[in-house]
Amino acid sequence: MSKQIEIKDLDIYYGSFRAVEGVSMLIEPRTVTALIGPSGCGKSTVLRSLNRMHEVIPGAYVDGSVMMDGQDIYGAGVDPVNVRRQVGMVFQRANPFPTMSIKENVLAGVRLNNQRISRKDADDLAERALRGANLWEEVKDRLDLPGSGLSGGQQQRLCIARAIAVQPEVILMDEPCSALDPISTLAIEDLIAELKNEYTVVIVTHNMQQAARVSDRTGFFNIAGTGKPGKLIEYNDTEIIFSNPEKDDTQNYVSGRFG
């Protein structure tokens, strides 16, 4: 499990508007890559392009390529649904299905994929996914209770369990801690460090300290002005980005001079 992702000359459009221009980056398997930058610079758009979720918006399309282990996910005949099975997504706000139990939430993706699974296998999969999300010990005695009854941090980990239950190879996280308290944030950050042992993880965050703590490599995005496309300004090892970046814009952003 886990895939190498190679983005080449990627332009992302919403109709006639070019939201992102000329992004090229290589993301290695079993690493955490952080995408940082001011609001509106395209980092979440790039993240959603990695599982073709941006195409949910009518008129959205890309030029360029996104190669996963050598296969272009935008190639002719590639089914975006199959791409999304391999590339899990965790959103900014936890979104457990409110009418489903904790266990049903974990298994929701498997059911949606029409996978036949015995009760014992379902029990085993739910436990494995919840253990993978560091949530099992907290919920094992209330699996039949609504997932919406969990705390915010637990709900986010439940969503991570739901994502990994379908056995993806890449996990995308769009500001997964922005709505959480510091204790819950720490739990998610610890989990991210564990997830990279099995998955390729890409995370968008506005929290500079978080990017420095959890990621191996960091990409800094910026925008020249309103109506201009976002661009990848610098991409390097996280330690270099935060201590000795090559670009002045990167230095100004990570030091808090703007953004």
Rank of each mutant, 00 (worst) to 15 (best):
L186Q: 15
Q154V: 05
K247S: 09
I183W: 01
K120R: 15
A34Y: 00
D11G: 05
Q156N: 11
S2V: 11
H54L: 11
V66M: 04
V204I: 13
L130C: 06
N134Q: 15
V78F: 03
R162Y: 01
I241P: 02
K120N: 12
L107N: 03
Q210W: 07
R18C: 15
G256L: 14
D249E: 14
S148W: 03
L47Q: 05
D123Y: 06
P245N: 08
E104C: 07
E246L: 12
L112I: 15
A193V: 10
A224K: 14
I102P: 02
A165C: 08
K231M: 15
F242I: 05
V202M: 00
C177I: 13
R162S: 03
M68C: 13
G225Q: 06
G259Y: 02
L158C: 11
I171G: 03
E198A: 14
F221E: 01
L232R: 03
M173E: 07
S148V: 13
R111W: 11
C41T: 08
K43D: 06
G132R: 00
L191S: 00
N207T: 05
L35E: 02
N51V: 06
R116P: 00
T45C: 07
L35S: 00
Q156L: 08
T99E: 11
N252E: 14
Q167E: 15
S16Q: 13
R131I: 12
G230A: 03
Y235C: 02
V66D: 01
Q155W: 00
R52E: 07
E175T: 02
R52M: 07
A211I: 09
E21Y: 15
L47S: 08
I102G: 05
V83W: 05
G219K: 01
Q92W: 12
Y199Q: 02
L35N: 01
I160H: 00
L35C: 01
V202N: 00
L172D: 06
V139M: 02
I183R: 13
S2D: 12
P58D: 12
K103I: 10
I27H: 01
Q209K: 14
E239S: 14
D216A: 06
Q167P: 03
T45Y: 08
D144R: 13
E127H: 10
V62S: 12
R116I: 04
L191D: 03
C177N: 11
G40E: 03
G219C: 02
R157L: 00
R157F: 04
R48E: 09
E6G: 10
S255H: 10
C177D: 07
G147P: 08
